[in-house]
């Protein structure tokens, strides 16, 4: 399936990746090559086959409801790009 330029712009936006207009044709071409490879899947006979999400058949283990964490805000915020008064700063969020 051929990918169109506008598809790439759309998924780049969904993924919040800056791809400039100048880059889009080359990116589209490369992604199309990968999609061609992926297209081989369509020929596989998978009627009645259960999708496999995990390599093991195990079920989720449940954790006892216990508080195990202490406040390590200073450690964690030391590596943050922008903080003030204990808050992470980002450009204004508009609702």
């Amino acid at each position: 399936m051929a990918l169109e330029l506008k598809d790439v712009a759309k998924i780049a936006h969904l993924a919040r990746l800056q791809v400039t207009d100048a880059e889009i044709p080359a990116v589209t071409q490369r992604l199309s090559t990968i999609l061609e490879l992926i297209e081989q899947l369509q020929a596989a006979p998978t009627d009645g086959i259960e999708p496999m999400a995990h390599p093991t058949d195990a079920v989720q283990r449940l954790r006892p409801d216990v508080v195990t964490e202490t406040d390590r805000r200073n450690d964690y915020q030391r590596i943050a790009p922008a903080v003030e008064d204990g808050l992470y700063l980002v450009p204004k969020v508009i609702e």
Binding site: D65, V66, V67, E69, D71, R73, Y76, Q77, D85, L87
Partner: peptide, 23 residues
């Protein structure tokens, strides 16, 4: 609950910002 759904952080309202936010 006492702790959060996927971590052992305290689940309580009103703490100082980001003091109940674990890894």
């Amino acid at each position: 609950t006492q702790s959060k759904i996927f971590s052992g952080s305290r689940n309580a309202f009103g703490a100082e910002p980001n003091t109940q936010a674990s890894l």
